[in-house]
Each structure stands twice: as structure tokens, then as C-alpha cells.
Design a protein around this nucleic acid. Sequence first.
DNA 1: TTTTAAACGGAATAGCTAATTCCGCTTAGT
DNA 2: ACTAAGCGGAATTAGCTATTCCGTTTAAAA
Lengths: 219, 219
Amino acid sequence: MPATKPEVRTKRKDAAANSERLTQAAREVFARQGFSATLEDIAQHAGVGVGTVYRNFASKQQIIETLYEAAIDSALADVQAALEIEDPWLAIVAFFDVTATNQARDRGLSETLLRHDGVGPDEKLAEKLIAVLSPLFERGVKAGVLREGVTVTDIYPIFTMLDNVYRISDASPQLWRRYLAIVLDGLRASERPALPVAPMNIAEFTAAFSSAVLASEPN
Amino acid sequence: MPATKPEVRTKRKDAAANSERLTQAAREVFARQGFSATLEDIAQHAGVGVGTVYRNFASKQQIIETLYEAAIDSALADVQAALEIEDPWLAIVAFFDVTATNQARDRGLSETLLRHDGVGPDEKLAEKLIAVLSPLFERGVKAGVLREGVTVTDIYPIFTMLDNVYRISDASPQLWRRYLAIVLDGLRASERPALPVAPMNIAEFTAAFSSAVLASEPN
DNA sequence: TTTTAAACGGAATAGCTAATTCCGCTTAGT
DNA sequence: ACTAAGCGGAATTAGCTATTCCGTTTAAAA
């Protein structure tokens, strides 16, 4: 029995398909429910049993790491794009807009970046963000479009605030834009445009306040 | 043995003292840690065993209800006071300020009013708030101090946003004031005062972003 | 077709956290 | 001293979900 020709049995194609499905299912489920989602949820969404999850990933943690390392890179690329905008104010708006959009779309992403429970991203990323974004903010202040005193570090509290709004946007998926607009206006040095998106109506307010679970579309 | 003179053995005074302590401990612990705090935590804070907690309260849920029914009433009273301010803008500022202050001081209170998990306050309260606060907002818009389009229902998303900031205010307990100021400016129709409170410095940002657990004083 | 190991489903297990119960020991009050 | 109210805190429940296991199914090689 020569050890030379390894005779690698080709991977069964149903298995390959399941693997695909699972990755996609994980993406979708984490995006919608965040990391509190169960592996059972993911398996179900993929139409397989939990056992199959473990034939493709070592653990829940590993799925998350794999998925969100890529997601963070992708998000950073979007930020880079915004930074290339010339107009100081528009660049800032674009930065907040694209970042908030990504986080609103993917709850796993915002948990990855904003969790308050001691499992956040490492300091490398924090430093990188500071380095990349400082110029944006400093330029904004210098150009007189950003209010005096606003700094890069304001982004953490601001995105933290927005994070909570994505979650109550069941009724109106874009509701967060209204509050982002309000915050941006509070950061800006001058004029005042109209608010985008309508506020909640009384029924929506009551439902949200009373924590009624509103029906919500996949997106 | 006549059933007339009930001969009520007076409550042991150490027991009475413990009862006091427990209530106070529960107040403090829930205020600082929210409802995820353990009965063990509370017992410890009061310097007694868990058993004693159950000799004073039927369940954790009951402690919460008892405590926060009163807390809500108290908070509403503060709101009423703000509503009596004549200046339309100052009244609005006072409303947000006093409410945020209360919620920042007591995490249990903000959880009671803002939880996203289907256990929120009942609709009665929502309706009451709408009724009481609508005039405040309508007057603000009419007086030209509140931006066109702002309505009562905006309070829910706004306090929801602020809620997340209280939690990252370990470094600087008043940090949330900075973001409340930004939001208020975004709501206002005109001028722009300086921002209160300094933003995070780089170290604080990095620590917060990386979820490092910062040491924090009781208040 | 038959054969066989890769894959599978999903029940069972393992771990963890925290509420609630229990009971032998203490101690205030008589 | 006596005694029942009180107490501490270990033990018990319970809920929840990650992870493991194993008998069964099935793609694909023979």
C-alpha cells in the first residue's frame, strides 16, 4: 500500500453545499439577531441539524471570528471611501452615514464593535481608527463646519447611541436616520436642514415604549 | 386563651433593621447595576444572607416592582416641575436634563422605562406621557425654539440613545451631558452654545472601545 | 448494484448562572 | 434560661444553550 498516491476522496457535493448554506445562514442570523442567536437558530435557518454546524466550524466563537474579521475589513473599506470626499462636511456626513448603515444592517457587526461586556475589539483597531479618523475631524473643525470642540473620540459614544436606535427601528427601518441627522446637526457649526424620515407616530411610540414586539420584515 | 387581646409579639428590631437595609441595598445595587444584579449581590451589599432577602420579599420580581413603582412616580414628579418653566426652550431643556439625570443615576429606572425585551412599562404610562408632554413639544415648535418637525414621540428614541451613553460614562460620570447637549442642539431651532463636559481622551476612547473595564466610583 | 465511509440529524450531555428553598444554628426578648 | 423569630448560606431547581455522540442516511466509488 504505497503512501505515495494519497487517493484523496473528493468532498461530497451535498456537504459542500451545506457548508455554503451554513456560512450564509450564520451571516444572516447574526446580522438580524446579533450573537445571542443560537447555533440551533443558524442550523435551522440553513435547513440542517446542529451536528452539521460542528462539522464545519469548531465552535460558535470561531464562526463569529471568521465572519466578522471579514466584516470589519469591509466596513473599514467603506470608511476609507468616505474619507476621500473633498468637502469637509460631506466627508463627515458620509463617514457617519456609511458606518451607521453598515451597523444598522448587521447587528453582529455593531456588537463586534460596540459591546460593553469586555469582549470588544482589540486596542490595535482603536488606534487605527483614531489614526485614520483624526484628520477627518480636525479638518472639519479647521474648516469651520464642525463645531468647536468636537473630536474623534466622540464617535464611540455617538455610535453607541445610534446602536440602540437600530433596535427600535422595527416599525420604520430607517428611523435611525432621523436621529443621526439630529446628532449631526448638533455636531455641525451652522445651518439646519429639515429632518429626514418621519418620527414615530403615537401608536408606534406606545408599542415601542411598552416593548410590544412589532412585526418586522427581514429587512 | 381569649382571642381578643392578640398579644402581637413585637417585631424583633434587628429584623426590622435588616429589612430597612435590604430595601436600601436593593435600591443602590439596582441603581448601579440594573436588574441583572443578583439577589446575592443585594444580600451581600446589605450584609445579610440571601435567605433573609426572602424573609422580606416574595421574589426578585416583587422587589423590582415595589421599588420602581415609587421611582417612576418620583421621576414623573420631576418632569412636572420642569413643565412649569415658562420659557419654552428652557422647559424642554429642563425636561431632558432632569429625566436623563434620573436615568443616569439609576440604571434600574432606565431599564424599567426603556427595556427592549418585551417587559416594558404598560401602555397607560405611554399614554400619560404623551398627554403630559405633547404640549411641551408643540409649544416649543410654535414658539420657534424647537426645530420644525420635532414631536413628543422623539423622546423614546432619544432617551434610548442616551441610555447607552450612561453606561460608558465610567471614566467621566457626566459624559452623557455632552451628548445630550449635542442632541438638544440638533433639536433646537437656532443658536449654538459650547459643548459641556470634555470628550473622552484617547486613552478613554481606547479603553471604552476595547471594552476594558474601567474602575468606577459609586457615583 | 453493492459497498463504504463521509455526512447527517437531533437527542443527550455538560456547564453555567442565578432564583428559590431548606434546615440546622443564633439570638432578641421574655 | 427558654423559645420561637430570624438568620446564613449550602443545596436544590430551573432555564438555557454550546457541544458531543451515535445510530441512520446517502453520495460516490467499485
